[in-house]
Write a protein that binds this DNA or RNA. Structure first.
Lengths: 193, 193
DNA sequence: GGTTGAATTGAACGCGCGTTCAGATAACCT
DNA sequence: AGGTTATCTGAACGCGCGTTCAATTCAACC
């Protein structure tokens, strides 16, 4: 059987990535087989290789696309460092709460990347960290912030904010606006502003 | 060959756990085989089953022992909430920097636990979170702290502090004392004290 | 020095893995 | 209607997996 209705490639391709995303996030890259992904898509395992070179590439492209979208989606606004920081915090929380599975994979499956792919992903991640550090440095220089060390503060704040995905549940005690506000309150104080 | 020198059980047992710890942390539970662990110990795969019921139990006991040690190692001092919080922060950083591999496993391999084992580990983790939240609640009640939400603040602070293991390297730009001090400074400010 | 038993080997079990590829199928084009 | 081509199947490849267990080895004991 093939070509049952319209062009299947435009449908199956995204389905493969979506199934891989779901399964990798739930069970981990190494614990998921190509046959499981194929079953989720509704296809035999061999057909997956029309849409990805191999399993490793499937993982790598999920992570790369995620980080590239993250980088595209936020630019520091032309404002003072405090407003820039608030913008960063609110965007980070929104973006991450919208993509819990991608966030999970991008942080957990680094060690399953080949060295070459790892270097690329790590570079993208560092670009993102540098964006935040630039804001902190600007604020520190202008005397608006008082952080003990901008690099350490960058890592500390990103870890704190990203952690929201580990506990936040839709429909829980706090809604997104409350979560955003609470994190921003803590970040604001932590940097001494 | 057997019993080459003294009692081997006392030596091989810990070696098995150590090898599993190292390999699970480096490559992930699902990506490590019993044969790899055995090779690291210097033994055939079958011999591992003298020291563990199965691979799952090996993972579970590493995580359980780690969390139980964490819980045993810190009790809130009889002091005001600010000092309790400082004690918690400094202990958390020290304890985690001393055991980066266990920390990594305990946070990353949760999804590879069977449901029963997962429930036990999650219970231990919640006990630890409750310790911090109790401090925050006490500080909030006495007016020393001003956090937006004690549960959210608990999760935010633990995520921030645990993140230290992802970037800290021995012999790097900052030593442990500086790291401890910097995190405490940010935590102190974040809770509004 | 013979016996015991803890410690380990090494082979075996059935199974699923990632990946390849020749062949089948069905939608499209002329 | 017939040919073309994108899409997918299904079988096959060699390999390593977690786990079991009879047989073996050798330090310790009598």
């Amino acid at each position: 059987m093939a070509r049952k209705q319209g062009s299947h490639a435009d449908i199956t391709g995204p389905k493969v990535r979506q199934a891989a995303l779901r399964l990798f996030a739930r069970h981990g890259f190494a614990a998921v087989s190509m046959r499981q992904i194929a079953a989720e898509v509704g296809v035999q395992a061999g057909a997956l290789y029309l849409y990805t070179a191999d399993k490793q590439t499937l993982l790598f492209e999920l992570m790369r696309d995620h980080l590239e979208e993250l980088l595209e989606d936020w630019q520091a606004p032309d404002a003072d460092p405090v407003d820039q920081l608030e913008s960063f915090v609110r965007h980070h929380i929104r973006f991450h709460l919208d993509r819990p599975e991608l966030v999970f994979i991008a942080y957990m499956e680094l060690r399953n990347l080949t060295p070459g792919n790892f270097a690329i992903i790590e570079g993208l991640r560092r670009d993102y960290e540098d964006r935040l550090e630039a804001v902190l440095k600007a604020g520190q220089a202008s005397g608006r912030f008082a952080v003990p060390d901008t690099k350490l503060a960058t890592m500390a704040l990103i870890a704190m904010l990203t952690g929201v995905t580990t506990w936040y549940r839709e429909g829980g005690r706090l809604d997104r606006a409350a979560v955003e506000a609470a994190y921003w309150d803590m970040v604001r104080k932590a940097v001494g502003t």
